[in-house]
Design a binder for these strands. Structure first.
Lengths: 319, 319
DNA sequence: TTGTATGCGTTATCAT
DNA sequence: ATGATAACGCATACAA
């Protein structure tokens, strides 16, 4: 019994009935299981696709992941997720290890873009798609949201509802989304002729606890009639702070979050939120990746997804 | 320049200054990146560990993942997460593909255990640790919670606070946790001499929307003074239903969730919740796995984590 | 220190 | 239909 024959039977190519039987018996007897590593070395593919996000605890990434999974499963790939913790070293280490052909491709959504990222991205031996902003000259497939316009949607909505003392709780300014949302907030306020009171702006990280603490600080020193939050985790934290402080939402203070995750709908009252199209971005990113895996010579593409606003009880007329 | 010399330099073993320089230059010029697959075929390890859970959108798995990540990172491994969607075919496909040596080991937390699972588990060529119940005779490392006792903790607490009309919103009874929690609820009620009114029991899946819908059905036909929920997602959904229905929590209806996730603390009022020690279970599972990776001849071990109750506003005295 | 040669477990090519 | 063999890219035992 030759190795070649065994391989053929196990892959369902040819083999006489007798040979097939003998191979199957032997395999069962030995408890044979194919070694996927060896197979991949030969086939130059693993059937695996990786997704690297900062924080898998943030529902926005869960939504993105589900959208990606649906697309890649279609093409017979399996999706693996890695949480980087926003750590630059961790992200690039991932690129170094995984991208060195453990996976057929990867989608990464970094919240910070450093030179190290750019270098690792361009040097990656496997196809990579970035979800998020990327310097213009980096030749990597890329799908981006427009959080600047997204914040403007929120501000426009609040101003239209008669709010003028609008607070803003943001994430770190040294992150790409944090910087974009800050700029978007200031631009939108200016457009409406509203000054940005420094006391009305708070910065934490993109988490619930930070959002709650930031909102508490904000409420301790000023009196907003609306608060825009840089994501839904922050918004839920701010809602908590508002309710604990005895503010009615939306009567006293209107609240708008961002990312339009499940969290916004799970809260009470439900929170208005700017959708940055996370599911759609995931779907597009997966498509770009599969295309590039199929043909590595494609020119880098860049897709955009427009924001939209979901108005709910937290900023709407009293339910 | 021989391949062996290049390999040595790239791995930092030996090499004269001159050779080292030449190798590095050549590598940079060609844009050489090591092929991890080939390296793994040789070294018989990938440095990767996989975690398979049903629903990464459930914070309980996020907590577990973080605990696991902390442990495996210590030993130089990288953690990859796969969401199975509770799908048996998907879970076993994962075992088949990943476990065939793409990873050095895996931790899986199935909510259903079928014969197919058992077979795949025992046949796995790489070390596997199961988080959750497992038939006694399956020789696989295993760490389990005691959700039966956990539900009892919730019921005891509510009865102790004078509640008698206690409702129960559970997940599917054909899942391991669903069945255990149902049994635990009935046993605890019986112990207190309380009858279980069928109208007071609802079943959905372990999600927010199902929890909310189930609580709405329950409230439409009966009038509980307390509700126990089989996990925090359900509890948040039930809280939403209660508030929409105009019930005060905890004055009119006390609420207790399970898993003690971030969600319980993010809600308003904060939700009392039974901790099943998800972080600790993750930590233990990771330890078991690393031990087994180091020594495959170890006898299968079984760890237990005791539940505890975190009392918060949703069932406590009025804040 | 450096080069040669072998093996890791498969698949694929080529004879037979 | 089957068997021998090369190749995938790397690490290492051994010889030089």
């Amino acid at each position: 019994m030759s190795i070649a024959s065994a391989s053929r039977v196990l892959n369902g190519i040819g083999g006489s009935p007798e040979t097939t039987r003998r191979v199957r018996e032997a395999a069962a007897a030995v408890g044979y299981v194919p070694n996927a590593i060896a197979r991949s070395l030969q086939s130059q593919r693993t059937g695996l696709i990786a997704l690297a996000v900062e924080d898998i605890g943030n529902p926005v990434y869960v939504a993105m992941m589900r959208a990606i999974e649906a697309v890649v499963a279609e093409s017979g790939h399996q999706l693996l997720v890695h949480a980087t913790g926003g750590d630059v070293a961790g992200e690039t280490a991932l690129l170094r290890r995984l991208a060195h052909r453990y996976v057929d491709g990867m989608i990464i959504s970094p919240i910070r873009i450093t030179d190290v990222h750019v270098e690792a991205l361009t040097a990656s031996p496997v196809p990579v798609v970035v979800v998020g902003q990327l310097p213009e000259d980096v030749p990597v497939d890329n799908v981006r949201a427009d959080s600047r316009t997204g914040v403007a949607l929120a501000v426009d909505h609040l101003v239209g509802a008669g709010r003028t003392r609008i607070g803003f709780v943001n994430g770190p300014l040294d992150t790409v989304p944090g910087a974009a949302r800050d700029a978007g907030f200031r631009a939108a306020m200016a457009r409406h002729g509203l000054a940005v009171d420094p006391a009305m702006v708070e910065v934490g990280d993109f988490q619930y606890a930070a959002g709650r603490a930031a909102a508490e600080r904000l409420l301790a020193r000023t009196d907003p009639d609306a608060i825009v939050c840089a994501n839904d985790l922050i918004a839920v934290g701010a809602l908590h702070a508002l309710l604990v402080a005895g503010r009615r939402v939306p009567e006293d203070v209107a609240l708008v979050g961002m990312d339009d995750t499940e969290l916004a709908q799970m809260s009470f009252p439900q929170i208005s939120s700017v959708s940055l199209g996370s599911a759609e971005r995931g779907q597009l990113a997966a498509g770009l990746l599969l295309d590039r895996i199929a043909d590595g010579t494609l020119a880098p593409r860049r897709e955009h997804v427009a924001p939209s606003l979901a108005v709910r009880a937290s900023s709407g007329s009293v339910q």
